[in-house]
Design a protein around this nucleic acid. Structure first.
Length: 288
DNA sequence: AAGATCGCCTGCAGGC
DNA sequence: TGCCTGCAGGCGATCT
């Protein structure tokens, strides 16, 4: 599941292999891939033909290629999305949803997505929080790794919430780029229970949490950051990450690496939260 | 109006 | 063997 580190690796791959080139033609192979684009598959494809790709940018889990005329090709990989670069003659796999060919006749770009939670759209650029971003994501907060991110704002907005700390971490309008996996990892590292009410967090706990979020994201980024160049054809946001060392996520029943207590799995928002019952004791007043 | 829930999707694991 | 259920999960839409 691509979260910020994976998406950043994809962005770096796009920067290296498609920025500076010009789109020749676009095939939309599954209409759902562009479901959020009001122009529809044909309009999306037509509007992109002949457009040069200027820059590859990212905020949180969204990435985009800026075009001329203050527009951008915006992408979200969802659960299973991949952007693959390779020989334009290779056969189309079953999950290829869109294909971009370039005027230089070189490697093409393919958006593949088994579960089709991801999407692409052609959008105008607009002013977001502290930066020019695609208009549809102007409501997304800066991610913890970007210059526009303000720790003071994050702390103030977090403790103003009336919810559990994990729900807050997953809310992209408070801080972007954190998904279920890294939320659990950051909470484990910060020794905070996922149901801890945000308004009870003390100043030191908030800074410990932010430090933990940045730590797990940064380490994952460094672990996976080379996978793209090594593979070249695999801008996929997965390869090189599945062997990432996780301390809590997915480790129900296994001993906590700090204290040996078995990691516990709790149902959470129709999915799961993993935590150490000893290091992350459940608060008396839990926000489930 | 903020916070919580729902529905979208497919493949796989596990039970019977 | 094959069917069924549950699970994975980000996010926009829709409730309260």
């Amino acid at each position: 599941m691509p979260e910020l580190p994976e998406v950043e690796t994809v962005r770096a791959g796009l920067d290296r292999h498609v920025v500076g080139r010009t789109i020749a033609s676009v095939q939309v192979l599954h209409p759902r891939a562009v479901r959020r684009d009001p122009a529809g598959p044909a309009g999306f494809a037509a509007a992109l033909a002949g457009r040069p790709l200027k820059r590859a940018e990212r905020r949180g889990k969204y990435l985009w290629l800026t075009l001329d005329d203050d527009e951008a090709l915006l992408a979200h990989l969802g659960m299973s999305g991949q952007l693959l670069i390779g020989d334009p003659e290779r056969p189309l796999g079953p999950h290829v949803r869109a294909r971009f060919a370039f005027t230089d006749g070189g490697a093409d770009l393919r958006f593949t997505d088994q579960r089709t939670f991801g999407h692409l759209m052609l959008v105008p650029l607009a002013h977001g929080e502290g930066r020019v971003v695609p208009a549809p994501i102007a409501h997304i907060a800066p991610d913890p790794m970007e210059a526009a991110f303000s720790p003071a704002d994050f702390a103030a907005r977090l403790t103003r919430r009336r919810t559990g700390v994990k729900r807050a971490l997953l809310d992209q309008s408070l801080v972007s780029g954190v998904g279920n996996i890294y939320a659990d990892e950051a909470l484990w590292r910060a020794r905070l229970h996922w149901a801890r009410p945000t308004e009870t967090l003390r100043r030191g706990e908030v800074s410990r949490l932010l430090e933990s979020v940045r730590g797990v994201l940064g380490e994952a980024l460094r672990a996976g950051g080379t996978s793209f160049d090594a593979l070249y054809v695999n801008v996929n946001g997965e390869s090189g990450f599945f062997d990432r060392s996780l301390q809590a996520y997915g480790r129900a029943g296994e001993p906590c690496s700090r204290c040996g207590t078995p990691i516990r799995r709790d149902p959470f928002m129709n999915r799961s939260s993993y935590s150490c019952p000893h290091c992350q004791p459940r608060p008396r007043r839990a926000h489930l």
